[in-house]
């Protein structure tokens, strides 16, 4: 609309005005270029930095399970044209597993909690109090992730490792992965719980919005058929926001996959695939922080390059997951 209008006006403008318009348009276009450039820059620089590691590690990087910087005091050797420490090998299968397992656990907890609490806020809480009540859940999103980590460290770890996990191991021990030693509280399940709390507000806020956008006509029709309010919400409203729920769940998954500080503080940072749901593990994001220091001791630089390769994987994973989530959510909003 404005395009047509402005084009017409443009011809009647004096030269000075036209110049101003040109500066405005070009300037705006240049500024708008920055975000795409930054995204491309992220990809370019991480790929450049990781390139020697990509060549040295090959495909084994993703499927093997051995992060070994090699002998620190050994003389660097040449492998396929790359200088590395003797015995160095890099495999991050345990990180891929840890990242996916903790994020899926988080989403598994956050999905019902987020959707059901959104239903409660949108349909039970009276209109006037809704914003205030919604803030209770949605303010969780404003708590810095390092504060979640601190809370996990001083509250969740001691309480869960003393009371919850031993009980779970006793009762659910017959299920593979739920039995065995419960350890010190640093681990997969603890991280899943903390991450869930960080993902929940995203789900609640978006589902609440989607619910309130559902046509009231359908809702009235449900009531007219004699359905209870819960039945109407459960059978009429929720199916209509199904796609939105899927989209926002994937968005939440993306948040959990990349979360660093909270995981770093409660995961136990193990270099193995966890033996059960209570065991220490690590994620790609947390590993970059916990291991950069060690990697810097490698005089050949291959360790840092390999960490950059993890960063590159995380970036690509982030782009894929968020693209899918946004495409779904865009479709919902039309």
């Amino acid at each position: 609309m404005s395009e047509i209008v402005t084009t017409r006006i443009d011809q009647s403008l004096p030269a000075a005005g036209r110049a101003k318009r040109w500066v405005f348009r070009v300037g705006l276009g240049v500024v708008a270029l920055i975000i795409p450039l930054v995204l491309l820059g992220l990809l370019a620089f991480l790929t450049l930095q990781a390139w020697p590691a990509i060549q040295f590690n090959g495909f084994g990087f993703l499927v093997s399970n051995d992060w070994d910087l090699g002998s620190q005091y050994g003389t660097p050797v040449s492998v396929d044209g790359h200088q590395v420490l003797p015995g160095a090998s890099y495999g991050i299968l345990f990180l891929i597993f840890g990242t996916l397992a903790s994020s899926l656990l988080a989403v598994l907890f956050a999905l019902p909690a987020g959707v059901l609490s959104a239903m409660f806020i949108a349909e039970v809480v009276p209109q006037g109090a809704r914003d205030v009540v919604a803030a209770v859940v949605e303010l969780l999103a404003a708590v810095p992730s390092v504060v979640f980590g601190l809370w996990g460290y001083v509250v969740v770890i001691p309480v869960f490792s003393h009371y919850v996990y031993p009980l779970m191991a006793d009762v659910l021990g017959f299920i593979p992965g739920f039995g065995g030693p419960v350890g010190a509280g640093y681990g997969l399940l603890t991280a899943g719980v903390v991450l869930a709390l960080m993902v929940v507000p995203i789900i609640t806020a978006n589902v609440r919005e989607a619910i309130s956008a559902v046509s009231r006509g359908d809702v009235e029709a449900g009531f007219a058929l004699g359905a209870t309010r819960f039945e109407v919400v459960w059978k009429v409203v929720l199916p209509q926001v199904k796609t939105a729920i899927v989209g926002v769940t994937i968005l939440g998954l993306g948040r959990a996959l990349g979360e660093t500080m909270a995981v770093l503080m409660v995961s136990g940072n193990a270099l193995d695939i966890p033996s059960n749901i209570y065991s220490p593990f690590s994620t790609m994001a947390a590993f970059i922080v916990s291991q950069l220091d060690s990697a810097l001791q490698d005089p050949t630089g291959m360790a840092v390059d390999s960490l950059s390769e993890i960063g590159l994987m995380l970036l690509i994973l982030g782009i894929i997951v968020n693209s899918i989530a946004r495409l779904i959510m865009w479709r919902v909003r039309g």
Partner: peptide, 25 residues
Amino acid sequence: RVVRFMADVLVGIPSIVLGLFGYIT
């Protein structure tokens, strides 16, 4: 539309990746 999409994707990129990028560059 491309910029909007990229902005939405960039919002979701793990912040540690940005940190690593800042460190490298």
